[in-house]
Simulated scan of single mutants.
Amino acid sequence: MKYKVGKNTGKKIFYIGIPAVVVLGIVWVAGLYLRSDGFEGISAAIVLEIAGSIVFALLTSISFAAWVFEDCKKRGEDAVLWVILIFITGTFVGLLLYLLRRSEVKRDCPSCGHRISLRAKYCEECGNLVENREEVMLMEKRTHHLKYLICGTVCAVLMLTCLVGFCVSLASGEGVNNSVSADKNLWNSGVITMSVETKLGNTWKVRFNSASNGFVKEAKMKIDDISEEKLYADISCGEVPEGAELILWLVQGEKAESINVTNLSEPLEYPLNEFQQGKIRIRLQINGVKEVKSQIQIK
Results as ranks from 00 to 15, higher is better:
Val23His: 01
Ile46Val: 15
Gly25Cys: 01
Tyr33Cys: 00
Glu40Lys: 02
Tyr33Val: 03
Gly41Asp: 06
Ile16Asp: 15
Ala30Gln: 15
Leu48Asn: 06
Val23Gly: 06
Ile26Asn: 02
Ile26Arg: 01
Gly17Asn: 06
Ser36Asn: 13
Ser43Ile: 01
Leu48Phe: 09
Asp37Ala: 09
Val22Asp: 05
Ser43Trp: 00
Ala20Arg: 05
Leu34Thr: 15
Ile13Phe: 02
Ser43Gly: 04
Phe14Asp: 00
Trp28Ile: 06
Val47Asn: 02
Gly38Arg: 12
Phe39Met: 03
Gly25His: 08
Lys11Thr: 03
Ile18Cys: 10
Leu34Cys: 13
Leu48Tyr: 12
Phe14Ser: 01
Gly17Met: 02
Ile18Thr: 11
Leu24Gly: 04
Leu24Thr: 08
Gly17Phe: 11
Ser43Cys: 01
Val23Pro: 04
Gly31Tyr: 15
Ile46Pro: 07
Lys11Asp: 09
Ile26Gln: 02
Ile26Gly: 08
Gly25Gln: 00
Val47Lys: 00
Ile13Ser: 01
Ile46Glu: 10
Gly10Tyr: 01
Ala44Glu: 10
Tyr33Thr: 03
Glu49His: 08
Ala30Ser: 09
Phe14Ala: 09
Gly31Lys: 13
Lys11Val: 03
Gly17Thr: 03
Asp37Tyr: 15
Arg35Gln: 14
Tyr33Leu: 12
Gly38Lys: 08
Val21Trp: 09
Ile46Ala: 07
Arg35Val: 11
Phe14Leu: 02
Pro19Ser: 02
Ala45Glu: 10
Glu49Lys: 10
Glu49Ser: 13
Leu32Ile: 07
Arg35Cys: 12
Tyr15Asn: 08
Gly25Arg: 04
Ala20Phe: 14
Asp37Ile: 07
Glu49Asp: 11
Ala44Tyr: 04
Lys11Phe: 06
Gly38Leu: 12
Ala44His: 06
Ala20Gly: 15
Leu32Tyr: 08
Trp28Cys: 11
Ser43Leu: 00
Tyr15Leu: 12
Tyr33Ser: 02
Gly31Pro: 15
Gly25Ile: 07
Ser43His: 01
Val21Pro: 15
Val47Ile: 14
Leu34Arg: 15
Val47Gly: 05
Lys11Ile: 12
Pro19Val: 05
Gly10Val: 02
Gly38Met: 08
Gly31Thr: 13
Gly38Glu: 05
Gly41Arg: 08
Ile18Phe: 12
Leu32Gly: 04
Phe14Ile: 06
Gly10Arg: 00
Ala45Gln: 14
Pro19Asn: 07
Lys12Cys: 08
Ile13Pro: 10
Val22Ala: 14
Asp37His: 15
Ala30Arg: 10
Ser36Thr: 15
Leu48Glu: 07
Ile42Val: 15
Leu48Ser: 06
Trp28Val: 10
Pro19Lys: 00
Gly38Phe: 09
Tyr33Gly: 07
Val21Lys: 02
Glu40Gln: 11
Val23Cys: 11
Leu32Val: 14
Leu34Pro: 03
Val27Asn: 12
Lys12Leu: 13
Val21His: 04
Gly10Thr: 02
Tyr33Asn: 12
Ile16Tyr: 12
Ile18Gln: 06
Ile16Trp: 14
Ser43Asn: 06
Ala44Gln: 10
Ala45Val: 07
Phe39Glu: 05
Gly10His: 08
Val47Thr: 10
Glu40Cys: 01
Tyr33Glu: 10
Val21Asn: 07
Ile26Ser: 04
Phe39Ala: 03
Ala45Arg: 11
Ser36Pro: 14
Leu32Lys: 09
Val47Ala: 00
Tyr33Gln: 07
Asp37Met: 13
Phe39Lys: 03
Leu32His: 05
Lys12Pro: 00
Val23Tyr: 05
Ile18His: 09
Ile42Trp: 05
Gly17Leu: 11
